[in-house]
Amino acid sequence: MKVEVLDKGMFSLIVDSGRVGRQRDGFCESGPMDSQAYHWANFLAFNLDGTPCIEAIGEMELQVDQDCVIAVTGREPSLLINGESAEVYQTYAVEAGSHIRFGSKLLGSKTYLAICGNWQVPKVVGSACTVVREKLGGLDGKGSALVKGDCFKISANTKPKEKPELRVLPQQYREDYGFVESIRVVPGYQYSSFSRVAVRAFETSTYTVSTSIDRMGFRLTGESVASDMVRMRSEAIHLGAIQVPGDGQPIVMMCDRQTLGGYPKLGCVSPCDISRLAQAVPGEKVNFTFQNEEEARADWLLMTSRRRRLEGEIL
């Protein structure tokens, strides 16, 4: 099956589960910004974990030349098939020649399109993820985002059932992308270098997501929380690490972060909340609360256990 890009939207990339374990070789981990939406898109489209899909900002449009099965997820996602509204967060059968238009109702958030089958796209350093900054991945292997006219192939079932098996993620189990609840943070290596006043200010203040956000990091504006460290050696940076440069304004490191950083880190966003934060758009307000590593681990195990149980109920 051939897939052709008719409208690239604002910014669209091919992503998969990322270059896990390659930071030591100088490659950023990359991967989907919203790993929860990415996972559900592939699950609902009958794909294996790690299968590539498209992460899009803005409305993107594709055309497929064979029958296929798709799923669209994300924050406030929308889906049109040949101009007609279609359901999101569920399996959807698409006929040959159809135009698939998808995006988010909230400008700046991410939407994920999964198409059932084996994606025939190049892999660089073991991953199909596109990293524009490092010029890695993409259809050209040089880190280029998708553009109008791009084509790629997917080995898919060309004769699906008339009524394919339906998988639906009920509304009550979908990610809550609001920020009424605080973002959980595990204290970082340099936590003790921040005064009690600075830590208290961080935890009790409201921060605004600035316009300086991308797949590398989210810069926040609000109460200053500068560390008393003057110099430190660069060290590896984990997904969600909250670096604090000299101006005291926190930066949350995201999927395409650099491998090393020399700013003190106040903490690291819990893996349970990083997808929610990744869907924030400029101007939104967020709050943070600290939890210890054991609480964070328990939350993660509980979340993954619930997801696996839910998958079993959907099957």
Rank of each mutant, 00 (worst) to 15 (best):
V3C: 06
V5A: 01
V5T: 04
D7E: 15
K8S: 14
V15S: 03
V15C: 06
D16F: 05
D16K: 06
R19W: 07
G21C: 01
M33A: 11
D34C: 04
Q36I: 12
Q36M: 02
A37D: 02
A41Y: 01
F43E: 08
L44F: 06
A45M: 03
A45H: 04
F46N: 12
D49A: 14
C53N: 13
E55S: 11
G58E: 12
E59K: 13
L62V: 02
Q63S: 15
V64M: 02
V64A: 06
D65Q: 06
Q66G: 01
V69G: 01
I70H: 07
A71Q: 02
A71M: 00
E76H: 11
S78Y: 10
I81K: 11
G83N: 12
S85I: 12
E87Y: 04
V88A: 02
Y92M: 10
E95H: 15
F102N: 00
S104K: 02
S104P: 12
T111W: 00
I115W: 04
C116V: 00
P122L: 03
A128F: 06
T130Q: 09
V131D: 15
V132S: 14
G141K: 07
G143Q: 09
K148Y: 00
K148A: 12
F152D: 07
K159M: 08
K161P: 00
Q172I: 09
G178H: 03
V180C: 03
E181G: 00
I183G: 05
G188M: 13
Y189G: 03
F194H: 10
S195Q: 10
A198V: 05
S205E: 12
G217H: 11
F218S: 09
V225A: 07
S227V: 11
S234V: 03
I237M: 15
L239H: 10
L239E: 10
Q243R: 13
G246S: 14
D247N: 15
D247T: 10
M254N: 08
Q258E: 14
G261C: 09
G262F: 06
K265Q: 14
K265S: 12
C268L: 04
C268M: 12
P271A: 05
P271E: 06
I274A: 02
A278D: 03
V286A: 09
N287F: 00
D299T: 06
L301D: 11
S305E: 15
R306C: 10
I314Q: 08
